[in-house]
Design a protein around this nucleic acid. Structure first.
Lengths: 225, 225
DNA sequence: ACTTGTTGTGACCGGATTGTAACCAGACCG
DNA sequence: CGGTCTGGTTACAATCCGGTCACAACAAGT
């Protein structure tokens, strides 16, 4: 498996490449955007790890270019606290992200998961857990073997975040950040609404949610069994 | 912060422990594999430093055992030139390594970095002491292996503060500050109430508290055994 | 411009959570 | 013994929070 890593922080670049090599991957290093793109063309890696903040062409542009050419999975690296970037990255089609600082172990786990997921895909990319399947391309969820339901952008994103932690409680603030990008905890109304709307689409009886359940003071969870 | 150090070289062990203590960490020493494992179980340290070459069960085995139980960060110590060991260690899930000989300054820098990293990563890892486990995301406590109990915001905060000092008496005024923010010190009624409510949730017989006990002059403690 | 679908904002309701006060019982003390 | 302190308990009021409704703002397609 070939993995392209692009980061202008050479220490971090080295560490990531080293960890990947140790885990049996072939790591290719680039230290700026243009270099990353050139290597992407030349080497056709199976996975790309991109730092968002790079001189020259930023990580965003590289990501866009890669998406224009194919569906190689892309993992973005972002500094803590730059939630805006995160949202933008996911919009551009990034598949996963990691917040710096992170441990090599975390990195490897996520890389592995991402590769497993993307190799299982081929053309389509249905994320699924239990009886819930999310099609990011078609903007649909399918519960069990019922007809797929079309979702809006925000609904899809919320579903995606809950699905990633299927069965576990996801904190409201965390969802706020992941779906909208702002940390201002005052905006619970948005989440409230979105959940309400999503429930009306997804639940057979929205007032007694089976799937998208409220977890008392902290947040929501997706029950997939 | 509790750090477990295991090394059969007693001089080095002493030196490392001494450096750590000086830097404000609580160092626990083990001189062989089985000892290290036993202490790991008993003390639940925040970080483990393991020499790879130890008699009996080697550092590898200890590392594997620790990984099987949780994700406590592990730092391996290796002699210069033993690249194979290093690769194997990282494979087993070690988070960092140090090549002997190293300076105390280097050691401390790496320990600090590792602890910062792992605490950042572990945003969803439950806090626990003895038979009490707190999940800050889900707002639940679990006592022994009973069903998790949902707590409110304030109850959670109180629990968290007591858990951080598990077994020790925590002063009422300190709790007031930590849970509510500041308040006039006369506001003991709030704490009284909160304790009362929490006891009704977590104690089997609230009038004879086993867990959340009153400590004589002015304070409470959490009994976790 | 009109229509439609999506998202943001404010208001209201009911139940949960939290704050406040009053009362009781035991400990301590002159 | 009477007074006072401290912690536990009960009762109730104030506030917070999630679910819901109604509507405004905005974008996209016709």
């Amino acid at each position: 498996m070939k993995i392209l890593v692009a980061d202008d922080d050479l220490d971090l670049l080295g560490l990531v490449a080293y960890s990947l090599s140790n885990a049996g991957y072939l790591a290719i290093k680039a230290s700026d955007g243009p270099g990353a793109l050139a290597l992407y063309e030349a080497e056709a890696p199976d996975l790309v790890i991109l730092d968002i903040n790079m001189p020259g062409s930023s990580g965003f542009e590289v990501c866009t270019a890669i998406r224009a050419r194919g569906d190689t999975p892309v993992m973005m690296l972002t500094a803590r606290g730059e939630e805006q970037d995160l949202v933008k990255a996911l919009d551009l089609g990034a598949d996963d992200y990691l917040t710096k600082p992170f441990s090599p172990r975390t990195l490897l786990a996520r890389v592995k998961a991402l590769l497993r997921r993307s190799s299982a895909d081929r053309s389509h990319a249905p994320l699924s857990a239990g009886r819930v399947t999310l099609d990011l391309e078609a903007y649909t969820v399918r519960i069990g073997n019922a007809e797929p339901i079309t979702l809006t952008k925000l609904e899809l994103r919320l579903m995606q975040m809950l699905l990633a932690q299927a069965g576990r409680v996801v904190n409201s603030d965390r969802l706020l950040v992941q779906v909208w990008g702002h940390r201002g905890s005052g905006d619970r109304q948005l989440l409230k609404q979105l959940v309400h709307r999503l429930r009306h689409k997804v639940e057979s009886n929205p007032s007694v949610p089976q799937l998208l359940q409220t977890a008392a003071p902290s947040g929501y969870k997706l029950v997939v069994e």
